[in-house]
Design a protein around this nucleic acid. Structure first.
Length: 731
DNA sequence: TACCTCCACGTTTTT
DNA sequence: CGTGGAGGTA
């Protein structure tokens, strides 16, 4: 037997070497699923069951795809050139480039990222004179993307009322604009390639025949379109291995459909589901708590993580009075962890929403602790980079109105909104791109010179750079466009100039990598009407696609020892020695908006499950009774998720500062009741009521016998209670 | 064109 | 509270 299989546990081995039919692998957190996926690929190739070309492996993120390729090559020194291992979007891009004619796309088509898509939607809505107060960009963007993910083109969307009719109209106009400009958005990549395959018998036969094995990572995150795409490709009899964890499905809000796991069992007549339940990451108490939590969810495929590493430490729970106190508790604990030899980079500080990071950062900054916040702007999303890319896009495709609008007056060259309006009108009248309109525009006065200098600039960039290597081309554009000079004048432009130079470096790295991995597919079945053997695609076009598909790392630079701050979503897939989950309060986590959504609470619970299972050795849960949010003080009750954990696994800790304050009275005597005001109660205190259950005091008014308290009850919401009659106990 | 002020908004997000 | 966008003014 091959030595790559050594060290796999029973179910891992079963999953890795099951090759006669499709299989579903339920892979718990930290159970070695990436190892199974990569070992399986190597095993299939090594045992001669398939050639590297007969395999399709799909992931969600570039990081996961890279990791997979890296692990494969470390086990099996093969050239991965031409292997179909990548993200859904990356592979669809590849498919559409190869068959752009059948897909009815220009060879130069460019990919809109979310921000590009947003600005195109804005433009479309303006041109349709849509009332921006009735239709938000965000909502329209969601409408378009979710329809594409359902496979619905504008003519297939049902219009139920006036409102949805308008949405459909915007959608239709948006698609038209994309076609004119030669651009596609992320969901379009998927939908277009799905349609390409459904409509083209020859192509689908080819790919169905080719891919003998299909492997899908993070299967619970697939949306309906991705599922349909996989099903279509597998329809020729491929063995599909879907690896996922329904308990870690936290992206339903953006279309992920974990029900695909159940559909998969039916559609692919799965006989056996392999469960990977042994966890190699966390100690027992952490797993037992997480298991207890997730048991509260109804719809589960069912799975229980276990470890042989011992129970370890209890889960530490801390209740703070204020968000500031919560932060200082966390900081003190981090300092003591560090003193005991734990590197900061092995400690994560998690929160449900980004807004919560501020107060934590504030405290960390004052304490002088190095930290790194994940999830900010990424490299290719920076303003100056987007500007440079827009020039490059315009060079490859002058129909790209979005790119033109971005740079026609940046750096400023005297083309104001009035001139742009004129160009827009001409374009609309003649049904041309803005570029063509600008070239032909009968403009008045000063505008003529300004516009023609812009046109000359772009034309010059086009002609002067023929034959340039990619990095040289970009450097030339940076200089000639005036971007560098512009930022030189700006006092705070130094960083931006550095980024522009970094873009040149990125192009150098990209070119080197491309030279190594670029692979031209052989033609399909001797047929001559395909593009597979078409001329080498311009490296610039590839680079622009790369920039959209891989917006750059959010990762901290290696070697830097800094505390890791991120949302729970961003923490998925990562692991840390110690994890702090902060803001465990009703309304925050679970988030108030999720309570009314169908399945919202269960998704929040899965989110909590993901958060907890990030911890290897030590887990802290904290919450605060009082918190500043959106400019007002809120009084929150402890999150129900803490109550759902087995009490014997928890260790409630008190802050040093807390000891100084008198502990709140456990129950409360009639004598105290007469002590005026709110007699022993205070705002922010947690209380229990015989009928309404647990809640927190939010407001108080009145004196003595008239005193009334407003309590926010977990079950029954806000209630005013007369202090004299209500039987309240502090908890 | 640059700067200012006012207003609305505020969960999570990869590609 | 803090931000980002829009619209007005110098």
């Amino acid at each position: 037997m091959s030595e790559i299989l050594n060290g796999l546990n029973e179910p891992q081995l079963e999953a890795t070497t099951h090759s006669s039919s499709s299989v579903l692998v339920l892979a718990g957190a930290g159970s070695g699923k990436t190892r199974v996926l990569t070992t399986r690929i190597v095993w299939l190739i090594q045992t001669g069951q398939i050639s590297p070309f007969e395999l399709l492996a799909v992931t969600f993120t570039n990081k996961a795809a890279k990791e997979m390729l890296l692990r494969i090559t470390s086990m099996l020194p093969i050239n991965t050139r031409g292997m179909w291992v990548g993200t859904f979007h990356g592979l669809c891009n590849r498919l559409l480039r190869s068959h752009h004619r059948e897909a009815n796309l220009p060879q130069t088509f460019q990919i809109l990222d979310s921000a590009d898509q947003r600005s195109l939607i804005k433009r479309v809505m303006k041109s349709l004179s849509i009332d921006e107060n009735r239709y938000s960009f965000r909502q329209v963007q969601y409408f378009i993307n979710s329809n594409k993910e359902e496979g619905s083109r504008p003519d297939k969307v049902e219009s139920v009322d006036e409102f949805s009719r308008t949405l459909i109209e915007i959608y239709r106009e948006y698609d038209r604009a994309c076609a004119h400009e030669g651009v596609v958005d992320f969901s379009e990549l998927l939908l277009r390639s799905y349609e390409l395959l459904t409509k083209n018998e020859r192509l689908i036969k080819h790919y169905q025949n080719r891919f003998k094995h299909i492997l899908v990572d993070e299967f619970q995150d697939t949306n309906k379109l991705q599922y349909a795409w996989l099903k279509l490709l597998a329809n020729g009899g491929a063995c599909v291995m879907a690896v996922g964890d329904d308990d870690q499905s936290i992206y339903a809000f953006r279309g992920a459909h974990s029900g695909n796991m159940i559909n998969f069992e039916k559609d692919f007549s799965i006989e056996k589901v392999v469960k990977l339940e042994q966890n190699y990451r966390s100690h027992g108490n952490i797993l037992d708590s997480a298991n207890a939590l997730i048991k509260n969810n109804g719809q589960r495929l069912g799975k229980n993580l276990w470890t042989d590493q011992g129970e370890g430490e209890p889960i530490r729970v801390f209740r703070a009075m204020t968000d500031g106190e919560e932060a200082s508790f966390i900081i003190e604990e981090i300092q003591s962890l560090r003193n005991s030899g734990i590197d900061l980079k092995n400690i994560a500080l998690l929160y449900r929403s980004n807004a919560q990071s501020r107060i934590l950062e504030h405290g960390l900054f004052s304490a002088g602790l190095a930290y790194k916040v994940y999830g900010g702007l990424r490299f290719f999303e920076r303003q100056e980079i987007k500007h440079a890319l827009a020039y490059l896009r315009l060079i490859t495709n002058d129909n790209d109105d979005g790119a033109l609008l971005r740079v026609i007056n940046f750096p400023t060259r005297g083309i104001g909104s009035r001139t742009i309006e004129q160009i827009r009108d001409i374009a609309e009248r003649n049904g041309t791109s803005l570029w063509q309109a600008a070239c032909s525009a009968p403009l008045s006065g000063r505008a003529v010179a300004a516009v023609s200098s812009f046109i000359t600039l772009i034309e010059k960039l086009k002609t002067q750079t023929v034959g340039f290597l990619l990095p040289d081309l970009i450097e030339h554009v940076n200089e000639t466009s005036g971007l560098i000079q512009h930022y030189q004048k700006d006092r705070e432009g130094q960083d931006r100039i550095e980024n522009l130079n970094e873009l040149v470096n990125a192009a150098t790295a990209f070119s080197a990598d491309r030279a190594e991995t670029r692979y031209t597919e052989p033609p399909i079945d001797g047929s001559d009407n395909n593009d597979l053997s078409a001329a080498e695609i311009d490296p610039l076009i590839d680079f622009l696609a790369h920039a959209s598909l891989e917006a750059g790392d959010n990762q901290a630079s290696a070697g830097e020892d800094a505390l890791q701050l991120m949302t729970v979503h961003a923490a998925k897939g990562l692991e840390f020695h110690s994890v702090f989950i902060s803001g465990l309060e009703e309304g925050l986590f679970p988030h108030e908006n999720s309570i009314n959504e169908h399945g919202g609470l269960e998704e929040e619970r899965r989110l909590m499950y993901v958060a907890m299972t990030r911890a290897m050795r030590r887990l802290y849960l904290s919450h605060s009774q009082m918190r500043m949010l959106h400019g007002q003080t809120r009084y929150n009750i402890e999150s129900r998720f803490i109550d759902e954990l087995p009490e014997e696994l928890l260790k409630k800790i008190n802050h040093a500062k807390n000891h100084q304050q008198a502990p709140p009275s456990k129950s409360f005597s009639p004598a105290m009741r007469s002590q005026g005001a709110t007699g022993g109660f205070r705002i922010g205190q947690q209380v229990r009521h015989a009928k309404f259950g647990d809640g927190i005091i939010v407001q108080a008014e009145g004196q003595g016998g008239d005193a009334r308290l407003q309590v926010n009850f977990r079950q029954s919401g806000l209630k005013w209670l007369a202090l004299e009659y209500a039987k309240l106990t502090t908890i």
